[in-house]
Computed example of a mutant assay.
Amino acid sequence: MAAAVVLLAVSCLASVAFGARAVSFETLVQALTAFDPENGDHAVVLSRVPRTVLGLLAGGALGLAGAAMQGVARNPLADPGILGVNAGAAFFVVIGIYLFGISAFSGYVWFALAGAAVAAVLVYTVASLGREGATPLKLALAGAALSAGLSSLMNAVLVSSQQTLDIFRFWQMGSLAGSGWDVITAVLPFLAVGAAITLGAGRALNGLSLGDDLARGLGQRVALSRGITALGVVLLCGAATAAVGPIAFVGLVIPHMVRSFTGPDYRWILPFSLVLAPVLLLLADIAGRLALPPGEIPVGVMTAVIGAPVFIWLVRRRKQAQL
C-alpha cells in the first residue's frame, strides 16, 4: 500500500508537470511553495492543479465503484461503463439539458445520479429474470443492451437539438479539461459518502462472493448488503460521470490487476482500487496531452484504448467467466 501511495503521488506530480508546456521539477516546487503570479510557468502549474485533483477523485471513484460492482454482481466483467450505469447517467444528463436547459454542474450531478440509479436497477432486474437468476453472462448482456438502447435514444435527442449537442458534445467524450474548483467542491460530498459506504462493504462483499445461499447460512442479509453497496456505487458513478463525463474501463482494469496480488479479499481489493485507479486515469490524461500537442486527446478515449484489449482478454478466458 505504501508503494501504491508513492506511485499515486508521482502520478499527481507528473500530471501537474507534463503537458503541451512542460515545466521542470524545480519550477514545479517553486510554483507550489512560492507562487509568482508574473511567472508564466507558475501559472501553467497552478492551472493544472484542479485538473489533477479532479482526476484523483474521479479515478478513485470509478476504480472503487468497479471493484464493488464486481463483488455485488459476482461478475468479473462488471464495470460502470459495461453494465450501462455510465450510459444511464449520460442519458439523463442529455434529458436535463434538452428539457430543462441545464448547463451547470450543479444540475448535471442530480440527473447523473438519477440516471445511474435507474440504469443499475434495470440491468439487475432484467438479468434476474429466468431460472438461473443474475448470472455474469446475463448481466453483461443486459448492460450491453441497455447501453445500446440508451445511446440510440440519446443520439436521437442530440440530432434533434443543436443547442443540446453543443452543450453535451465536449462532456460526452470524458475529459478532465476545463473543470475548476467549483466542480470539485460540488462533487466532493457525494464522492465522500459513496466512498465511505463502499469501503465499509468489504466484509459483506466477501460473504456475497461465496454465493447467496452460503452467505445467508452465515447470517448475512444478502438483499440489504447488495442494496447498501449499490447505493455507494451509484453515488460514486453518478458524481464522477457528472464531473468528467462517461469514462469506461477504469473500473474494469484496476480491480483485476489488484486482485492478482491481494487475492479475493475485498477488504484489500477496495482500498487498493481506490489508490491505484487514479494512477491509470492520470497517466491516460498525460498521454492524451502529449500525443497531439498543443491539442489533446480526451482521457475517455485514452482509457478505452487501454481498457478494450483487457476486456476482450477477460471475455475470452473461460476461467474468468465468474467470481
Rank of each mutant, 00 (worst) to 15 (best):
A2S: 14
A14D: 06
A20N: 10
V29N: 03
L32N: 06
A34K: 15
D41G: 01
R48D: 02
R51S: 07
G55Q: 08
L57R: 09
L64R: 05
G66L: 08
Q70H: 07
G71P: 05
D79P: 08
I82K: 08
G88K: 08
S103D: 15
G107L: 10
Y108I: 03
A116Q: 04
V118Y: 04
Y124F: 13
Y124V: 12
V126E: 06
A127W: 08
R131F: 03
T135G: 01
K138F: 09
L139C: 12
A140S: 09
L141P: 00
G143F: 12
L146S: 07
G149W: 09
L153H: 11
L158E: 08
D166F: 15
M173L: 14
S175E: 01
W181K: 10
I184Y: 13
L188G: 06
L191C: 00
V193H: 04
A195M: 09
A195E: 07
L199G: 02
G200H: 10
R203Q: 15
L205P: 05
Q220E: 11
G232L: 05
A240Y: 05
V244W: 01
F249V: 13
V250L: 14
W268S: 14
P271M: 03
V275E: 08
V275Q: 06
L290R: 12
P294E: 00
I297L: 10
V301S: 00
M302W: 09
A304H: 04
V305N: 13
V310D: 09
I312N: 03
R317I: 13
